[in-house]
C-alpha cells in the first residue's frame, strides 16, 4: 500500500504529465538525425586523421583507404549502457490475469518483409467490439476497418488522445493519453501481434483499464481517439473509459482473440 507521500507524488506527477505539451515527433527525429550526422562526421574525421597519421607507410605497403580502418577508429553506435541488460526479451504474461509492461518483441515471423507497411490513413471507424472485466482489470478490444486496396503489415502501438480540457464554446483541448504499453492475458490463446491485413479486413488493439477501487482515484477518459496523423484522429465508438490505475494499450494485431 503506497503511503501518502507516494500518493501525493504520483498524483501531482500524473497531473503534470497530462498538462505537458511535447514537441512533434518529427522535430525530435530531426534533432536525432543532426546528432547522428555530427557523430558520423566526427568518426569520419578521426578516420581521415588516422590515415593521414599513418602516412605513406600505409600506402607503401598496399594499405589504402578502401581497406578496413585501423582498430580504434570506428565506434559502435550502441550506447554504452543498457538499463536492464539481464531482462528477457520474451513478453511476460502474469498468471493472475494482469498486464505486463514488458513490450512485445516485433513480429518474429519476418512476414513484414513480404508486404508493405500499412498506412494508418487506411484505417477507419475505431469501435469497441469485445472485452470483459476480471481480476480488477477491464479489457476493451478496439477494431478498425482496413480500407486499403493491397495487403499490408501493421506493427507497433497505437497512439491515443483524450479530451483533457476546454469545451465546445471555448475550444476543446486534447492531450496524448499517457497509456502504458502492455499485453493482456485473458485466459485465451496467446495473441500474435502485428501481422498482415487483407483488403476489407480489420486490425485490432487492446485498451485495458483498471477497475480495482484501491488502485487509485477513478479517472474518466472522454472522447478517446486514435491518432492516424496530426489532423486525423477518429473517435473510438464505445468510450468513455474509466480507470483507477491508468490505461494500457497493446500492439496492433490482425486477428482478435
Amino acid at each position: 500500500m503506497a503511503d501518502r507521500f507516494e500518493q501525493a507524488l504520483r498524483a501531482g506527477s500524473a497531473r503534470f504529465a497530462m498538462n505537458t505539451d511535447i514537441e512533434r515527433p518529427h522535430d525530435v527525429r530531426a534533432r536525432g538525425e543532426r546528432r547522428r550526422r555530427r557523430r558520423i562526421a566526427v568518426v569520419a574525421s578521426a578516420v581521415v586523421l588516422a590515415v593521414a597519421g599513418l602516412g605513406g607507410t600505409a600506402y607503401a605497403t598496399g594499405w589504402g583507404p578502401s581497406s578496413a580502418p585501423p582498430a580504434g577508429t570506428t565506434r559502435s553506435p550502441a550506447p554504452s549502457h543498457s538499463p536492464s541488460p539481464s531482462r528477457s526479451a520474451a513478453p511476460s504474461h502474469r498468471a493472475d490475469g494482469g498486464m505486463s509492461e514488458q513490450p512485445e518483441s516485433p513480429d518474429p515471423t519476418g512476414s513484414a518483409s513480404s508486404t508493405r507497411q500499412c498506412s494508418l490513413g487506411d484505417l477507419r471507424d475505431p469501435t469497441v467490439v469485445d472485452g470483459g472485466v476480471g481480476g480488477g482489470h477491464s479489457l476493451n478490444v478496439v477494431r478498425l476497418g482496413y480500407t486499403g486496396a493491397q495487403p499490408c503489415t501493421l506493427t507497433g502501438y497505437p497512439t491515443l488522445t483524450y479530451l483533457c480540457g476546454g469545451n465546445e464554446q471555448t475550444g476543446e483541448k486534447h492531450c496524448v493519453l499517457p497509456a502504458r504499453r502492455g499485453t493482456w492475458f485473458d485466459g485465451g490463446p496467446k495473441k500474435e501481434y502485428g501481422g498482415t491485413v487483407q483488403p476489407g479486413g480489420a486490425v485490432y488493439f487492446d485498451l485495458a483499464t483498471v477497475s480495482e477501487p484501491t488502485a487509485g482515484e477513478k479517472q474518466t477518459y472522454s472522447a478517446v481517439r486514435v491518432v492516424i496523423d496530426r489532423d486525423t484522429q477518429p473517435l473510438i465508438d464505445g468510450g468513455p473509459f474509466e480507470s483507477t490505475g491508468g490505461v494500457s494499450v497493446s500492439q496492433w494485431y490482425v486477428q482478435a482473440g
Binding site: 504529465a17 497530462m18 515527433p25 527525429r29 507497433g156 502501438y157 504499453r181 491518432v227
Partner: peptide, 15 residues
Amino acid sequence: DFDSFYLGTAPRVTS
C-alpha cells in the same frame, strides 16, 4: 514505431 513510442511515453518521462 518511434513516433508511437515517443507520443505514448514522453509526457510521463517528462513528469
